[in-house]
Design a binder for these strands. Structure first.
Lengths: 122, 122
DNA sequence: TCTTGACTTAAACCATGATTTAAGTCGTAT
DNA sequence: ATACGACTTAAATCATGGTTTAAGTCAAGA
């Protein structure tokens, strides 16, 4: 298996090292290995988990829920149903948020038009 | 002109009164009037500003920027250009965020499919 | 008049999600 | 051997956006 350092993981996903350490402490990156000098080794599993964590963060899932999800991933197949339910609910929350933003954008667009018009007739 | 109490404003937009007081203190609701007993009176202008503030919050504009925008609204027509530029930039930021979320949603959908399949073949 | 309910204030407190700090350990190139 | 850069830790600090608290004022109905 291939391992990468915290510096490489940081560069790969453009996440500060401090944030990666924070994520480990928060249980978002469990089972982290270390080299003889105590430095973190990110295995392919950690990198895959990290990618998942980042996806969930991009869609505004709170750390608390991400921690639960990751714990279920580690726990294995017996938690498939729980993970399916969680992701299904989360998907709906994300769709709702996108709808809210899209709707608010209409009001913003309206103002942009109004400001443009005002600058024209000046 | 029609005035409404903080309680009515709170009920209208489903925002806690404490939050409305906080917004006023943060400069998001300026020029607030008061009755003889010192209670806030939301004029139609305050209600319109509040609606704008809520729209900007729904699209994740930081309070700091909302404050600047509202100050420009109060300042009047001489700030039209500044407001147009700010809203144009903000619109792009919102579109970027929606794109990021939509993209992350693909990874989430993929997992949902995988979990569903796994539960089928059980 | 007295109680109730809605309101007021400033200041303290809370939650979330990091980031920074201070002190120290390694491994490698000069 | 020593200096450099990359790494380590726990704990303190920060930013953002509110929420809660404690003490008090006021108007209207019983």
């Amino acid at each position: 298996m291939k391992y990468v350092s915290i510096g490489e993981a940081s560069a790969t996903y453009k996440i500060p090292e401090s944030t990666l350490r924070y994520y480990e402490k928060q249980g978002l990156l469990p089972l982290m290995e270390r080299d003889a000098a105590g430095r973190r080794l990110f295995s392919e599993m950690q990198m895959a988990l990290l990618e998942t964590v980042l996806r969930l963060k991009q869609t505004h899932m709170p750390i608390h829920d991400i921690r639960q999800y990751i714990a279920w991933v580690i726990e294995g197949d017996s938690t498939t149903r729980l993970r399916l339910d969680m992701m299904t609910k989360h998907k709906q929350a994300v769709l709702d948020e996108i709808a809210t933003m899209t709707d608010a954008l209409k009001g913003i667009d309206y103002k942009i038009d109004r400001y443009r018009g005002r600058l024209q007739n000046k």
